[in-house]
């Protein structure tokens, strides 16, 4: 009974405590100019990914490189479940801790607009990998996913010169990067007699990511090629095609550079993958965050007029996979 009452009181007091905490934050938050003038102040920078994928190890290498050059710390945060709620919580948390700049790969740009603007009002916010163009972020570093999709679409067109049927696999179709990548592919294969006959979601269930591919290959006997839009779709597609013994009969084109994806390109199960430049995401994000946090208005003036820094994409296939892997291993080593 007493314990219950205490808990009740505590709960009732919570909003008050939170409100107090917020007030403190806003008071203690220094202006950019002040920060610049205070050499002892530790600059707090954060790099927030969209999920805990090993993809971000490469960005981490970029972060590490800049950390060494500029003698500044950048904290990396990975939303454990990859949901917008997770990410919002992390962002709000960082902002209320008085971080000087935050870089984020936005999971759901439209749904998170409110939180993003709230954070942008408190600190310097930039985006990488996945943008939220409508928000008040200062800068976007990355390749627009539409262009990445277009690059893969063009490769698919050369893989299927006679046209053909393809199926698309992804965690959630409505995610912005998925939509952009798919739109890019569709733009590139238009008028090429290539038809998308099925699209399947797995809601990040990794076992379902594989069984979806198996099911669809079985359901469409005339399928020529499968596309994986998210990073773990590549390994799932490779495992399914190998399991079904369809190497060479059903081609695969995917995104990103998971270990298993690169292995599958080396052994021919996957024809090509489009990789972004995650090292650049990390390095450039760290650099711009640092500038914005310490140089204030001077840095803001230096921002590109478009608000976008395009890092470009690379298409990896059997011809360049070995050298890419070596390069990658080198980068990852630097994070150990």
């Amino acid at each position: 009974m007493n314990a219950k009452r205490k808990l009740g009181l505590l709960l009732a007091a919570l909003p008050v405590l939170v409100a107090l905490g917020c007030n403190n934050d806003s008071k203690s938050k220094p202006s950019a100019a002040q920060t610049a003038s205070d050499p002892d102040k530790i600059v707090k920078l954060a790099f927030v990914t969209n999920n805990p994928s090993q993809f971000w190890k490469i960005s981490e290498a970029g972060l590490k490189k800049y950390e060494k050059e500029a003698k500044v710390q950048v904290d990396m945060k990975m939303p454990p479940n990859g949901t917008p709620e997770d990410q919002n919580q992390i962002l709000q948390n960082l902002a209320s801790q008085g971080y000087d700049a935050i870089a984020v790969s936005v999971i759901a740009p439209n749904d998170q607009l409110g939180v993003l603007n709230e954070v942008a009002a408190k600190t310097n916010l930039i985006t990488f990998d996945s943008d939220a163009a409508k928000s008040k972020r200062l800068l976007y570093i990355g390749t627009n996913n539409f262009d990445a999709g277009k690059a893969l679409g063009e490769r698919i067109a050369t893989l299927l010169p006679q046209g053909g049927k393809i199926a698309v696999f992804v965690g959630t179709l409505s995610a912005d990067n998925a939509t952009q990548r798919l739109n890019g592919i569709e733009a590139a294969i238009k008028d090429k007699k290539i038809e998308i006959v099925d699209k399947r979601e797995d809601n990040t269930d990794r076992a379902k990511a594989r069984s979806n591919v198996e099911d669809i290959i079985n359901a469409h006997k005339d399928l020529n090629l499968v596309v994986g839009l998210w990073n773990y779709n590549g390994p799932a597609i490779a495992a399914a095609i190998q399991g079904l013994g369809k190497q060479g009969k059903v081609l695969a084109a995917v995104f990103d550079e998971d270990d298993a994806t690169l292995d599958a390109i080396a052994n021919g199960t996957i024809a090509a993958t489009v990789v972004q430049k995650p090292f650049q995401f990390g390095y450039l994000s760290a650099k711009w965050m640092h500038d914005l946090a310490t140089k204030g208005d001077a840095a803001k003036k230096a921002l590109p007029a478009s608000g976008i820094i395009d890092t470009g994409v690379t298409v990896i296939d059997k011809t360049n996979v070995a050298s890419f892997k070596a390069e990658l291993a080198e980068m990852k080593k630097s994070t150990q």
Binding site: P52, G82, D205, R206, R210, P235, A236, A238, A239, A260
Partner: peptide, 16 residues
């Protein structure tokens, strides 16, 4: 069995 089937493990395997 799932580890063998999925071929790569993250903490997301087995949710729900």
């Amino acid at each position: 069995c799932y580890a063998a089937y999925i071929g790569q493990m993250s903490q997301q395997v087995g949710v729900a």
